[in-house]
Protein backbone atom coordinates (compact mmCIF):
# COMPACT_ATOMS: atom_id res chain seq x y z
CA UNK A 1 0.00 0.00 0.00
CA UNK A 2 1.19 3.50 -0.80
CA UNK A 3 -1.04 5.16 1.78
CA UNK A 4 -2.76 8.29 0.51
CA UNK A 5 -1.82 7.50 -3.07
CA UNK A 6 -4.25 4.61 -3.34
CA UNK A 7 -7.12 5.80 -1.18
CA UNK A 8 -8.82 9.13 -0.73
CA UNK A 9 -10.54 10.23 2.47
CA UNK A 10 -14.29 10.59 2.10
CA UNK A 11 -16.91 11.26 4.76
CA UNK A 12 -20.19 9.41 4.33
CA UNK A 13 -23.16 10.83 6.20
CA UNK A 14 -24.67 8.01 8.24
CA UNK A 15 -28.29 8.91 7.65
CA UNK A 16 -30.90 6.57 9.04
CA UNK A 17 -32.94 7.46 5.95
CA UNK A 18 -30.50 5.83 3.55
CA UNK A 19 -28.95 2.56 2.51
CA UNK A 20 -25.59 3.55 3.86
CA UNK A 21 -23.99 0.09 3.85
CA UNK A 22 -24.38 -0.34 0.10
CA UNK A 23 -22.99 3.08 -0.70
CA UNK A 24 -20.12 2.59 1.75
CA UNK A 25 -19.10 -0.66 0.10
CA UNK A 26 -19.08 0.80 -3.41
CA UNK A 27 -17.28 3.98 -2.30
CA UNK A 28 -14.56 1.79 -0.82
CA UNK A 29 -14.41 -0.13 -4.09
CA UNK A 30 -13.98 3.25 -5.80
CA UNK A 31 -10.91 3.96 -3.67
CA UNK A 32 -12.37 5.92 -0.76
CA UNK A 33 -11.04 5.65 2.76
CA UNK A 34 -14.31 6.16 4.57
CA UNK A 35 -15.40 7.83 7.72
CA UNK A 36 -19.07 7.04 8.25
CA UNK A 37 -20.50 9.59 10.63
CA UNK A 38 -23.50 11.49 11.89
CA UNK A 39 -21.36 14.05 13.72
CA UNK A 40 -21.52 17.57 12.22
CA UNK A 41 -18.00 18.34 13.50
CA UNK A 42 -16.64 15.37 11.60
CA UNK A 43 -18.44 16.70 8.52
CA UNK A 44 -16.77 20.08 8.98
CA UNK A 45 -13.34 18.40 9.04
CA UNK A 46 -14.02 16.47 5.83
CA UNK A 47 -12.05 16.53 2.59
CA UNK A 48 -15.03 15.18 0.67
CA UNK A 49 -18.59 14.36 1.65
CA UNK A 50 -21.22 11.99 0.32
CA UNK A 51 -24.84 12.57 1.32
CA UNK A 52 -26.99 9.50 0.63
CA UNK A 53 -30.74 9.22 0.98
CA UNK A 54 -33.73 7.11 0.02
CA UNK A 55 -37.41 7.42 0.73
CA UNK A 56 -38.73 10.62 2.20
CA UNK A 57 -37.24 14.07 1.59
CA UNK A 58 -39.13 15.42 4.60
CA UNK A 59 -37.79 12.77 6.99
CA UNK A 60 -34.27 13.14 5.62
CA UNK A 61 -34.33 16.93 5.97
CA UNK A 62 -35.71 16.71 9.51
CA UNK A 63 -32.84 14.46 10.46
CA UNK A 64 -30.26 16.80 8.92
CA UNK A 65 -31.72 19.70 10.89
CA UNK A 66 -31.94 17.77 14.15
CA UNK A 67 -28.29 16.71 13.90
CA UNK A 68 -27.15 20.18 12.68
CA UNK A 69 -25.55 18.45 9.74
CA UNK A 70 -27.52 20.85 7.53
CA UNK A 71 -25.40 23.78 8.73
CA UNK A 72 -22.23 21.76 8.47
CA UNK A 73 -23.02 20.93 4.84
CA UNK A 74 -23.71 24.58 4.03
CA UNK A 75 -20.42 25.50 5.65
CA UNK A 76 -18.32 22.98 3.71
CA UNK A 77 -20.06 23.99 0.48
CA UNK A 78 -18.91 27.58 1.11
CA UNK A 79 -15.38 26.28 1.55
CA UNK A 80 -15.71 24.44 -1.77
CA UNK A 81 -15.26 21.03 -0.17
CA UNK A 82 -16.59 18.53 -2.73
CA UNK A 83 -20.05 17.24 -1.80
CA UNK A 84 -22.04 14.56 -3.64
CA UNK A 85 -25.74 13.98 -2.98
CA UNK A 86 -27.25 10.69 -4.11
CA UNK A 87 -30.97 10.18 -4.91
CA UNK A 88 -32.84 11.88 -2.05
CA UNK A 89 -29.41 13.24 -1.05
CA UNK A 90 -29.37 14.94 -4.47
CA UNK A 91 -32.86 16.30 -3.92
CA UNK A 92 -31.87 17.70 -0.51
CA UNK A 93 -29.35 20.01 -2.20
CA UNK A 94 -32.14 22.07 -3.81
CA UNK A 95 -34.14 24.99 -2.43
CA UNK A 96 -37.29 23.00 -1.69
CA UNK A 97 -39.43 19.95 -2.35
CA UNK A 98 -43.16 19.55 -2.83
CA UNK A 99 -43.09 16.01 -1.45
CA UNK A 100 -45.85 16.67 1.09
CA UNK A 101 -46.25 20.34 1.68
CA UNK A 102 -43.38 22.51 0.50
CA UNK A 103 -40.31 21.74 2.58
CA UNK A 104 -37.10 23.75 2.45
CA UNK A 105 -33.99 21.87 1.39
CA UNK A 106 -30.34 22.78 1.91
CA UNK A 107 -30.59 25.54 -0.69
CA UNK A 108 -27.14 24.80 -2.13
CA UNK A 109 -28.48 24.50 -5.65
CA UNK A 110 -31.26 26.53 -7.18
CA UNK A 111 -34.41 24.63 -8.03
CA UNK A 112 -37.35 22.80 -6.73
CA UNK A 113 -38.11 19.09 -6.40
CA UNK A 114 -41.57 17.92 -7.43
CA UNK A 115 -43.47 14.77 -8.26
CA UNK A 116 -42.80 13.20 -11.65
CA UNK A 117 -45.51 14.65 -13.90
CA UNK A 118 -46.09 11.75 -16.27
CA UNK A 119 -48.57 9.10 -17.24
CA UNK A 120 -45.77 6.54 -16.91
CA UNK A 121 -45.67 4.40 -13.76
CA UNK A 122 -44.52 6.27 -10.66
CA UNK A 123 -42.18 5.52 -8.96
CA UNK A 124 -39.89 5.25 -11.94
CA UNK A 125 -37.98 1.99 -11.48
CA UNK A 126 -35.21 0.88 -13.77
CA UNK A 127 -32.26 1.76 -15.97
CA UNK A 128 -32.78 5.06 -17.71
CA UNK A 129 -30.40 6.55 -20.27
CA UNK A 130 -28.54 9.63 -19.10
CA UNK A 131 -27.35 12.41 -21.39
CA UNK A 132 -24.60 14.59 -20.01
CA UNK A 133 -22.43 17.49 -21.02
CA UNK A 134 -18.70 17.36 -20.48
CA UNK A 135 -18.85 17.40 -16.68
CA UNK A 136 -15.91 15.67 -14.99
CA UNK A 137 -18.28 13.54 -12.91
CA UNK A 138 -19.04 11.57 -16.10
CA UNK A 139 -15.46 11.23 -17.34
CA UNK A 140 -14.88 7.98 -19.16
CA UNK A 141 -18.55 7.13 -19.50
CA UNK A 142 -20.20 6.59 -22.88
CA UNK A 143 -22.96 9.02 -23.85
CA UNK A 144 -26.49 7.71 -23.17
CA UNK A 145 -25.33 5.13 -20.67
CA UNK A 146 -28.19 3.77 -18.55
CA UNK A 147 -28.13 4.27 -14.78
CA UNK A 148 -30.47 2.80 -12.21
CA UNK A 149 -33.23 5.09 -10.95
CA UNK A 150 -35.93 4.50 -8.41
CA UNK A 151 -37.79 7.69 -7.58
CA UNK A 152 -41.14 9.45 -7.59
CA UNK A 153 -39.75 12.99 -7.31
CA UNK A 154 -37.29 14.94 -9.46
CA UNK A 155 -35.84 18.35 -10.08
CA UNK A 156 -36.28 19.61 -13.63
CA UNK A 157 -35.24 22.64 -15.69
CA UNK A 158 -32.62 23.70 -13.18
CA UNK A 159 -29.78 26.05 -14.17
CA UNK A 160 -26.98 23.86 -12.80
CA UNK A 161 -27.96 20.70 -14.62
CA UNK A 162 -25.05 18.62 -15.96
CA UNK A 163 -27.06 15.55 -17.02
CA UNK A 164 -30.63 14.79 -17.89
CA UNK A 165 -32.87 11.84 -18.62
CA UNK A 166 -36.41 11.43 -19.91
CA UNK A 167 -39.34 9.90 -18.16
CA UNK A 168 -42.35 11.13 -20.05
CA UNK A 169 -40.53 14.46 -20.01
CA UNK A 170 -36.99 15.54 -19.38
CA UNK A 171 -35.74 15.74 -15.80
CA UNK A 172 -32.43 16.50 -14.10
CA UNK A 173 -30.29 13.39 -13.68
CA UNK A 174 -27.29 15.26 -12.22
CA UNK A 175 -26.33 18.74 -11.12
CA UNK A 176 -23.14 20.58 -10.30
CA UNK A 177 -22.57 23.98 -8.83
CA UNK A 178 -18.97 24.69 -7.96
CA UNK A 179 -18.01 21.66 -5.87
CA UNK A 180 -21.54 20.58 -5.01
CA UNK A 181 -22.71 17.60 -7.05
CA UNK A 182 -25.93 15.63 -7.06
CA UNK A 183 -27.09 12.54 -8.93
CA UNK A 184 -30.72 11.43 -9.00
CA UNK A 185 -29.77 7.87 -9.94
CA UNK A 186 -28.12 5.31 -7.70
CA UNK A 187 -24.46 5.05 -8.76
CA UNK A 188 -23.94 2.32 -6.16
CA UNK A 189 -26.56 0.22 -8.00
CA UNK A 190 -25.58 1.12 -11.54
CA UNK A 191 -22.94 -1.54 -12.11
CA UNK A 192 -19.71 -0.45 -13.85
CA UNK A 193 -20.81 3.04 -14.95
CA UNK A 194 -22.05 3.84 -11.43
CA UNK A 195 -18.75 2.76 -9.95
CA UNK A 196 -17.00 5.01 -12.45
CA UNK A 197 -19.07 8.04 -11.37
CA UNK A 198 -18.15 7.41 -7.74
CA UNK A 199 -14.50 6.91 -8.65
CA UNK A 200 -14.56 10.21 -10.59
CA UNK A 201 -15.91 11.94 -7.49
CA UNK A 202 -13.54 10.25 -5.07
CA UNK A 203 -10.48 11.09 -7.19
CA UNK A 204 -11.40 14.57 -8.41
Amino acid sequence: MKGHDVVRPVTLIDSPVANVANIARVLRAAGASLEVTSDPLAVLRSKKVVLPGVGSFVAAMEWLRATRIDDALREIALRRTPLLGICVGHQLLFDSSDEMTTTAGLGLIRGRVSRLATSLPVPQIGWNRVRFNGAALFDGIEPDTPFYFVNSFVAADVPDEIARADYGRAFTAAVQKNNVYGVQFHPEKSSGPGLRVLRNFVWM
Binding site: T118, S119, L120, Q124, I125, G126, W127, N128, Y167, G168
Partner: peptide
Protein backbone atom coordinates in the same frame (compact mmCIF):
# COMPACT_ATOMS: atom_id res chain seq x y z
CA UNK B 1 -56.82 10.09 -24.71
CA UNK B 2 -54.41 12.50 -23.11
CA UNK B 3 -52.63 9.72 -21.30
CA UNK B 4 -52.66 7.40 -24.30
CA UNK B 5 -51.04 10.10 -26.41
CA UNK B 6 -48.46 10.81 -23.73
CA UNK B 7 -47.56 7.13 -23.56
CA UNK B 8 -47.40 6.87 -27.35
CA UNK B 9 -44.94 9.77 -27.38
CA UNK B 10 -42.34 8.05 -25.19
CA UNK B 11 -42.58 4.31 -25.81
CA UNK B 12 -38.93 3.67 -25.11
CA UNK B 13 -38.75 5.70 -21.91
CA UNK B 14 -37.20 2.98 -19.82
CA UNK B 15 -36.17 -0.53 -20.82
CA UNK B 16 -38.12 -3.35 -19.20
CA UNK B 17 -36.04 -5.16 -16.60
Amino acid sequence: LDEARARAASPRAIPPR
